[in-house]
Simulated scan of single mutants.
Amino acid sequence: MITISAFHWVPPFAKGQVRDLRVRWALEEAGLPYRTRLLEQGDQDKPDYRALQPFGQVPIFEEDGRVLFETGAIVLHIGERSETLLPNDAAARARATQWLIAALNSIEPHIMNVAAVELFYAGEEWAKLRGPGAREFAQHRLASLANALGDRPYLDGDRFTAGDLMMTTVLRIAPKLVTDARLQAYVERCTARPAFARAYDAQMGDFRDAA
């Protein structure tokens, strides 16, 4: 049985955003059953967990003695068992991988930069100075993404892939930054998938059970 780690509790603003959602969604798309290993506060810093995840983050993916961390690596690993996530066609498969990496490298750092200065460090003087520039650059990247998407339903045309899964989870981090109607419709389209609903409900259900 696949086991993924997740937090037992997070602040309200983080619910529905914690990165185990990405892995849950991929598992749901692939039709693979899993269970969760819920961490209490501080568990992520214990030596046994750090031996599996050196940065103390969630999730880790465990199956048959194998352990993976980093959501990009985990989603690609799951995708090896799901044509929905990684198509059999070699070129389409490469493009799906390309967009997954673009989500993590070309989009997420800039969205997280805005989230950091406007949420976590809003009262700091340096953040007040950095905020407008961070937002401007993030908007520039999002405009490039919207132009690449165009009027297509998904990043590679008519077919949803692991690239769309990862990009959608990144765009959900800061919805107020996503002002282009094409990207808004794209996020709505992807999150309307039944697999996303099951993954989201499972994460929120773990938080409710822990309350």
Rank of each mutant, 00 (worst) to 15 (best):
T3N: 09
I4W: 02
A6T: 08
A6C: 04
F7M: 13
F7N: 12
H8V: 00
P12C: 06
K15S: 07
G16W: 08
G16A: 06
G16R: 02
D20C: 08
R22Y: 02
R24A: 02
L27D: 10
A30H: 13
G31D: 11
G31T: 15
P33V: 03
R37F: 10
E40S: 14
Q41E: 10
G42I: 15
G42Y: 01
D43F: 01
D45R: 11
K46I: 04
P47E: 05
Q53T: 14
Q57A: 10
F61I: 04
D64K: 12
R66N: 12
R66Y: 12
V67F: 13
F69Y: 15
A73H: 05
H77D: 05
I78C: 07
E80V: 02
R81F: 08
R81A: 14
S82Y: 05
T84E: 12
T84W: 04
L86V: 02
A91W: 06
A94C: 08
W99M: 01
I101Q: 11
A102Q: 09
A102I: 06
S106K: 01
I107K: 01
P109A: 10
H110M: 15
M112Q: 15
N113I: 00
V114C: 04
A115D: 08
A115F: 14
A116P: 00
V117N: 03
L119C: 04
L119M: 09
F120M: 07
E124M: 13
E124S: 12
E124T: 08
E125I: 10
A127N: 06
R130M: 09
E136I: 00
F137E: 13
F137G: 01
A138P: 10
A138L: 11
Q139W: 00
S144I: 10
N147G: 12
L149W: 06
P153S: 04
Y154H: 07
D158M: 03
L165V: 12
T169I: 02
V170S: 11
V170D: 08
L171M: 07
K176A: 12
A181W: 10
A181L: 12
Q184Y: 04
E188M: 07
R189T: 09
C190E: 04
T191D: 14
T191P: 07
A192K: 07
A197D: 14
A202F: 13
G205W: 09
D206E: 15
F207L: 14
